[in-house]
Amino acid sequence: MAVVEVVGVKKDYVDRGAGTTHALRGVDLAVESGEFMAIAGPSGSGKTTLLNLIGGLDTPTAGSVKVDGRELATMTSAQLSDLRRDRIGFVFQAYNLIPVLSAEENAEYVMELKGVGSGARHERIEGLFERLGLAELRHKRPPKMSGGQQQRVAVARAIAAEPAVVLADEPTANLDQATGRALIEMMRELNRERKVTFIFSTHDPMVLEQADRVVRLVDGAVTSDDRKAGGAL
């Protein structure tokens, strides 16, 4: 079953004065569990808009978005909150973390929202941080971390509560080449090892190389959908 199913989705931003922007003009997309998928496209093509709609952060003007088989349009805002908490991980471009919480506390935050006890949380975070080479960051707060470290902790937080899908909106855009590559490789490994489904947007060719599947957006419409031979699927 598809984890994410987008059918005929349109999104218009109505702006007094500037007029209406057709950010998405009818997008269809199905993402299976375990995919490592990129949404590519130039700036302004609608990548962020699409990820926001999939994550239930915004509502489409037309069409349907399903996550885990559940139609988002029928859900209340509290139900959407819970869906995000339980089924979706987010990584944004930068400043993902809650500044007053340490790396570890940030990663535990979603689990705590879910009501996971502190013992179980610690155990899971310890293992995860160990695995991701973040162990020495555990007690650091975001303002004391580099951009790359922050993004890695953000990925750890996104997968900590074992979501059905992680949505990453240009996660490497604020990082230098090497750091960006390391981040994508970390995501790649998590995808292989733990079957975490990733949908990330980018316009960086280096990042695109890593993806099994690349969906291209131009002006709010899908222009191509390529699967790499030998990919996970």
């Binding site: 509290a78 909150s81 819970d82 400043y95 993902n96 929202l113 879910k114």
Partner: peptide, 16 residues
């Protein structure tokens, strides 16, 4: 604002 947006995005309900 951004911070609260992140909190909301990752699953905090408004009342939190």
């Amino acid at each position: 604002t951004r911070e609260f947006g992140i909190m909301r995005a990752i699953g905090s309900r408004p009342r939190r």
